[in-house]
Design a protein around this nucleic acid. Sequence first.
RNA 1: GGGGACGUGGUCUAGGCUGGACUAGGACACCGGAUUGUCACUCCGGAGAUCGCGGGUUCAAAUCCCGUCGUCCCCGCCA
Length: 582
Amino acid sequence: MKRENCGQLSGKDVGRKVCLAGWVHRVRDLGKLTFVDLRDGSGLVQLLFRGLPDARKLSCEDVIRVEGTVVLREAPNPDLPTGEVEVKVDRLEVLAQAKSPPFAVDEDPPKAGEETRLRFRYLDLRRPRMQRNLRLRHRTTMAIREYLDREGFIEVETPLLTRSTPEGARDFLVPSRLEPGKFYALPQSPQLFKQILMISGVERYFQIARCFRDEDLRADRQPEFTQLDLEMAFLEDPEELFELIEGLLSHVFQETIGVELSRPFPRLTYEEAVFRYGSDKPDLRFGLELVDITEAFAGTEFRVFREVMEAGGRAFALRVPGRAGASRKELEELEVVAKAHGAKGLLWLARGESGPRGPLARYLPRQEPLWEATGAQVGDLLLFVAGEPVSAAQALGQVRLELGRRLSLIPEGVWCPAWVVGFPLLEWSEEEGRWTAVHHPFTSPRSEDLPKLMAPDFPQERLGELRANAYDLVLNGVELGGGSIRIHRRKVQQRMLEVLGIGPQEAEARFGFFLRALEYGAPPHGGIALGLDRLVMMLAGESTLREVIAFPKTASGTCPLTGAPAEVDEDQLRQLHLKVEG
RNA sequence: GGGGACGUGGUCUAGGCUGGACUAGGACACCGGAUUGUCACUCCGGAGAUCGCGGGUUCAAAUCCCGUCGUCCCCGCCA
């Protein structure tokens, strides 16, 4: 007899003989009568055992097969999709007994701690929510492949054992057995391969690619993660790509959670993002925008501000409506947030009924310019951070997010994607004492800045002015991905590397294969990479990546299920020409 | 590399500030028994814990102190 799905039985099936198999979800033993909820991939159905005493020995998560007849229930259960019927069992076969599980599979949210869940991931994944997340992830990748296939993209796999190309994150290394002392690296992204595919005439490439970065982890960062990696030849205007990706995301949202995204997505410049929202990945679901009040403070007596201004800094304000009565404690907590993100402090000024209140009040004989600049009404609270423009704005941006949460300003079920464009090409690294690429070393500058990059006499110290032809896609304050128009001319690429402190010899050693490829007819090209795990996490409404990855790692990069990473035999080390110290 | 929170039977947790009647309490799970309409079944009985590990303070440590390990969150880091 053919096995059927538990979850699909209904009144229509009454009277049919069926064969079911699955896991024992719960047992209710009433003596001469035993009820068992049977679970399989499709759902739950109640089994009725009468005169089959073996049923009384069943326990949770045993795997069984039964044959029986679908009957109407005496007391239907409206909470269960199959609640109208039950299966009166006349044959029971135990396929596998289960030990008593460390946590119940029907708990949501699970009571067990995360480490326990990961150690028994196979049990955790049986939970309906995790099954839902796995399926959601599957549907997401299906929707991506459908859409991109239709748009003429082909999926090409690229190597996992590749070459370390430092610059960027720390690599995971794989020692070579055949070449003592040499190492493969796991890819941080398929960047150079996809560019080489452009040179190979693929024109429209994508890959759902695993990437590896050996950096410290976070709730939204795993050492191995999945990107939707995509590249197009003859892409010179990012708008063409924006349109494609907007269509892709809309399709994905429609197919997975039935949400219609409004298009086109807003475009923000990096400056707007940073100075209006205090973040290069702004959460646009709520207002509470920053205001630059440097002018309103011009000529202030207040030493702290005066010094900041003299050093070329700026001051930003956040107007918090109706919070003039904020408590000392609340303000201190907000200051902790600001300080944790690099602010020297958080100043405040409340526009109370009886005049301004706050430590700043006496330094501002005239508040009018401030009220005017910020639009502060009586009853409002102003918060200030002053300092180096970008970091001051970002610190206040973190305060903005905190207030958004505290004051419940962030609406549920709202999706606010946006493109952020116009990033700087380079940033100065104090630590390394050199310019580093904001995006990556293969990103093209904007065409109007190209001459500056190429001019040998362009002053080093002004390289920070150059803009990249790069873009980020943000969604509800989360960076979903980023990309750029790439450099497709060897000369430009070589110059870029030089600016990054990689001279011709070193460039040849590390990137020679790629520079050579650029010499054989490279089309202009560009693309993007989207964090698939993050996307699915958001679609699923989860707050960590671990909930949408079947077998994730802990924050210290271990796997409680397998015990990885683990020691290896001396013999294995010897074959790899490795010695472990300490 | 730095900061914070947590660690108590299989699981989740109470107790911890204010050390002593804590002989470590509860819930779920488990084991035995009862049970013919349950659906978080119910009822009766039972077993199960070196309080993460090491050291210290003390007459006395789950409780206080130091160290260490693990988990989680954050900063740095993540082109």
